[in-house]
Nucleic acid binder design. Structure first.
Ligand SMILES: NC(=O)c1ccc[n+]([C@@H]2O[C@H](COP(=O)([O-])OP(=O)(O)OC[C@H]3O[C@@H](n4cnc5c(N)ncnc54)[C@H](O)[C@@H]3O)[C@@H](O)[C@H]2O)c1
Ligand SMILES: NC(=O)c1ccc[n+]([C@@H]2O[C@H](COP(=O)([O-])OP(=O)(O)OC[C@H]3O[C@@H](n4cnc5c(N)ncnc54)[C@H](O)[C@@H]3O)[C@@H](O)[C@H]2O)c1
Lengths: 218, 218
DNA sequence: AAATCTTTGTGATATAGTTAACAAAACGTC
DNA sequence: GACGTTTTGTTAACTATATCACAAAGATTT
C-alpha cells in the first residue's frame, strides 16, 4: 500500500541491492517466477522479512503465485536508480584502493569509480583498471569539474581527517571510510565506516563467546 | 552489576574492538582518565550508549571522575582475548586477498593471517607480507595440521560454495565471506558476509533517498 | 466449477537497540 | 569537612527490526 516516497526502513534499504542481485541471477537462469520462500533460501533472509520489505513498495506479488521475476527486476531497477550512474572518487591508491580500482563495481551496479587520487608520484599519471590517478593537489579542481559527490577513503589513518576536510570543501555529499579513523564532518554529510579490522576482531569475539545455540547467524 | 559470563548484546560486542582501539590511542597520548562524553566524541557513539555498553561488564568507572584509561584498557585486553592469538587462513590471493595479506591486522589486534591458499601456480610457493601461499590441494591437510578454524574467503563467487564445503570438512568454525555468494553451511558454523558491492550500492541509495534531516548518520 | 493447494500481505507480537533523564556517588575546591 | 560540580550507572521510554501466524486471494488440479 505504501508508495515509494514514503521512507523505507534503513534495514530494508540495505537489503535492496542484495535482492536485486539475486533477482538478476534468477533472471539469467531463465526463471519466470519466485516465491519469498525460494528467495529466502537464496539470500539467507527470513521469508517474512522479504515479504515485509517488498510490501513497503506496494503489492508486488500475487497470492498463490509469488513474484514475477521480470516485473520485480524492473521495479527494483527503477527504485535503485540502476539506469543512472553515480560517479565515485577513490582517495588513496594503496593496497586496498588498488583492489577496489581493479574490481569492476559496474557489473550489475550503478556506481563507478571514475577517478583516483594519491600523493605518491609513482602512481600519479598512471591508470589502474581504466581509472586515471591524479595528484592530491588537483583534488578540489577535478571533483568540482566532474561533479563528483561520493568518495571512497583508503588512505593511512593519520591523514584521513585533513583529507576529509578538503573533500568537504570540494562539496562532497557522502564518504565511504575504510580507515580506522572516526571522522568529523558537518551533519549534512553522510559518512559510512567500513572498519575491516573491527569486523575481523568482533567476528573472532563472537566465535569465542557466542558458540552458536541461538539462531543468530547474522 | 552483570558479570562477564552473561551474554552481552551483539551490538555492544561489535563496538568493543572500537573502544579498545581508541583507548589505546588515548593511552599512547599519555591520558590517564576519560569520560564517556570524551570517548563519545572520539568514537562517534552516543555517550549513554558507551556507559550502557561498559555497564554490562560491571561498574568500571567512578562517578564524578570517569574511567581510568589504564584500568579500562587492561580490562578490555582480557575481555577481547588480546593476549591470545587467533590464527586465520585466507583463501583466494587475488586483488582483495593480497591487500589483506599486506595489511598488518596484528597491529593492536589479536588475529593474524597465518596462511594463504590459491590455485594460481604463479602464487603458490610465494610469500606475501610474510604469509606463505599454498595450493588448494593442501587446504585440508594444512588447516587441520595448524589447527586453524577461522577463514577469510576472497575467491571468485562461483567457486565460493564448493570451497566452503571443503572448509567445513576441514573443521572450520567461522568464515568471513567477502564474495557476493550467500553460503550454505551447517548451523554450527558462523558466517559473516561483508559485501562491499552491496555496501557501496546501499550507501548511494541512502544518499539519494535519505537527504539527511534525521540524526541517523550511522 | 468445485475442491484443494499455495503464497501473499499484514496485524500482532516479540526481540533488539538507543537515548533521555536523573539520583546517587565521588571528585575537587575552598 | 562542607559545598558545588562532575559524571557514572540505570530505570524508563522510545525507536527499530524481525518474526509469527493466518485470513484472503488466487493458482492449480480434478
Ligand atoms: N589493506 C587492508 O586490508 C586494510 C584493512 C583494514 C583497514 N585498512 C585501512 O585502509 C587504509 C588503506 O590501507 P592500505 O593497506 O591500502 O594502505 P597503503 O599504505 O597500502 O595505501 C595508502 C595509500 O594512500 C596514499 N597516501 C598517503 N598519504 C596520502 C595523502 N595525504 N593523500 C593521498 N594519498 C595518500 C599512499 O601513497 C598509499 O598509496 C588504511 O587506513 C588502513 O588502516 C586497510
Ligand atoms: N576486489 C574488490 O574490490 C572486491 C569488492 C567486492 C567484492 N569482491 C569479491 O571478492 C572476491 C575476490 O575479489 P578479487 O577482486 O580479489 O578477485 P581476483 O580475481 O583478483 O582474485 C581471486 C583469486 O582467487 C583465486 N582462485 C580462483 N579460483 C580458485 C579456487 N578454486 N580456489 C582457490 N583460489 C581460487 C584466483 O587465482 C585469484 O587469485 C570476489 O568474489 C569478488 O566478487 C572484491
Amino acid at each position: 500500500m505504501a508508495q515509494e516516497p514514503v521512507k523505507i526502513p534503513q534495514a530494508t534499504a540495505r537489503r535492496l541491492p542484495l535482492y536485486y542481485r539475486f533477482l538478476n541471477n534468477l533472471h539469467s537462469q531463465g526463471k519466470q517466477r519466485v516465491s519469498s520462500a525460494e528467495l529466502s533460501e537464496a539470500v539467507k533472509v527470513d521469508s517474512a522479512t522479504i515479504r515485509r520489505d517488498f510490501s513497503y513498495f506496494g503489492a508486488l506479488g500475487k497470492k498463490g503465485y509469488g513474484y514475477n521475476v521480470n516485473y520485480l527486476l524492473g521495479f527494483f531497477r527503477k527504485t535503485l536508480d540502476q539506469d543512472e550512474l553515480t560517479k565515485v572518487a577513490l582517495i588513496g591508491v594503496g593496497n586496498l584502493g588498488t583492489a577496489f580500482l581493479n574490481y569492476n563495481f559496474l557489473k550489475n551496479n550503478n556506481t563507478k569509480i571514475e577517478i583516483g587520487f594519491d600523493v605518491d608520484e609513482s602512481k600519479v599519471g598512471t591508470t589502474i583498471g581504466d581509472v586515471p590517478i591524479y595528484h592530491m593537489d588537483e583534488l578540489q579542481e577535478k571533483l568540482v569539474e566532474q561533479g563528483i559527490t561520493v568518495a571512497i577513503l583508503t588512505v593511512p589513518a593519520p591523514v584521513a581527517q585533513p583529507i576529509t576536510d578538503s573533500l568537504v570543501e570540494a562539496n562532497i555529499k557522502g564518504l565511504l571510510n575504510f580507515t580506522p579513523a572516526r571522522l568529523n564532518v558537518p551533519k549534512t554529510i553522510r559518512v559510512h565506516h567500513i572498519d575491516l579490522a573491527v569486523e575481523l576482531q568482533s567476528f573472532v569475539y563472537f566465535l569465542k563467546h557466542y558458540p552458536i545455540t541461538e539462531k543468530e547467524l547474522i
